[in-house]
């Protein structure tokens, strides 16, 4: 099974562990992720902050390269790149002459019929069914699933899950046997691009996110975006300074969680690269349930 893949710059650099975990579970499930030949940076927030046409051209070049390579689906683990690709595809689809103009700028013929998948869609479509017979452990921990802002918004463009209180990552974690808590900062912004240039804001925003999750008893936070991960993990000193109390709740990627459930070696998942050490262990061994236990009734009381 071959799928188009766009790692993005952070997966090659500061968030290598995200790339390693994606590759590990893909390999485990027999999926080959084919990177776009000679892909370039999608421009992330910097590009659209400074110049609209640049912010459309950089992603468009990647999409054009992917189409030329004959790919039909494109897995984009990083939420920022995913959001930029979908925004570009959406805008160029709805504005004919802008589409022509951008094609002129990138000197390539970008058509726009590529299916762009974020990491959760990739898991839902290609991983989740094969999970049951390959799972070795149950992640029997209380986890807080954190979606961030660019994974679910703007809904008109992405049309993925609910914008407030999304449930798709929670559903995956439930499949892994985790208890995903109901908490209030699922889609609040972590401070994203201000990590370097306006760090105290990141301290406040990420601090509120960590504080709410810890307060509700989360033992780990599950993320699906390298920018969120670096803010919540690397900027933990600023977070603790804002919250005026230390927190050692680890931040792991959804792909790392699946890796742990599959019993993949922790080094292969890059767990050793985290700033906040991931001291999650003694998982319950997973026994494949023969009869389907009754679906957990959504008790209102």
């Amino acid at each position: 099974m071959k799928l188009g893949f766009y790692p993005g710059c952070s997966l090659e650099g500061a968030s290598r562990e995200y790339n390693e975990s994606v590759m590990a579970i893909a390999e485990e499930m027999g999926i080959e992720l084919v990177s776009i030949p000679d892909w370039n940076c999608c421009g992330a927030t910097a590009a659209h902050n400074m110049d609209k046409e640049l912010s459309l051209s950089l992603p468009a070049r990647n999409l054009a390269l992917a189409e030329e390579a004959g790919l039909t689906e494109l897995v984009v683990p990083c939420a920022a790149c995913y959001s930029r690709f979908c925004a570009t595809q959406h805008e160029l689809k709805h504005d004919e002459n802008l589409h022509k103009k951008i094609n002129g700028i990138i000197e390539k013929e970008y058509k726009g019929n590529l299916r762009i998948l974020n990491v959760i869609q990739f898991i839902e479509e290609f991983i989740i069914d094969k999970l049951e017979d390959k799972m070795k452990f149950e992640i029997n921990k209380k986890v807080a699933c954190y979606y961030g802002c660019l994974l679910v918004r703007p809904n008109k463009v992405l049309n993925f899950d609910r914008t407030e209180d999304p449930q798709t990552m929670d559903a995956v974690m439930k499949k892994l046997g985790a208890d995903s808590i109901d908490w209030a900062f699922k889609t609040e912004c972590c401070g994203a691009g201000f990590s370097v240039s306006f760090t105290e804001t990141v301290g406040r925003l990420s601090g509120q996110i960590i504080e709410d999750a810890v307060h509700r008893g989360a033992e780990a936070m599950i993320v699906a975006c390298p920018m969120c991960h670096s803010n919540l993990d690397m900027r933990r000193p600023e977070i603790d300074k804002y919250n005026k109390k230390k927190s050692d709740m680890p931040i792991i990627y959804i792909t790392q969680a699946i890796g742990l459930a599959l019993g993949i070696d922790r080094k292969k998942l890059g767990l050793q690269r985290h700033f906040v050490p991931v001291k999650l262990n003694d998982f319950k061994p997973y026994t494949k349930k023969t009869e389907v236990e009754n679906p957990q009734k959504m008790e209102v009381e």
Binding site: T45, C149, R153, P154, T187, C189, G191
Partner: peptide, 8 residues
């Protein structure tokens, strides 16, 4: 931060 919360 263009986090799109306002438009949503």
């Amino acid at each position: 931060l263009t986090c799109e919360m306002c438009i949503s």
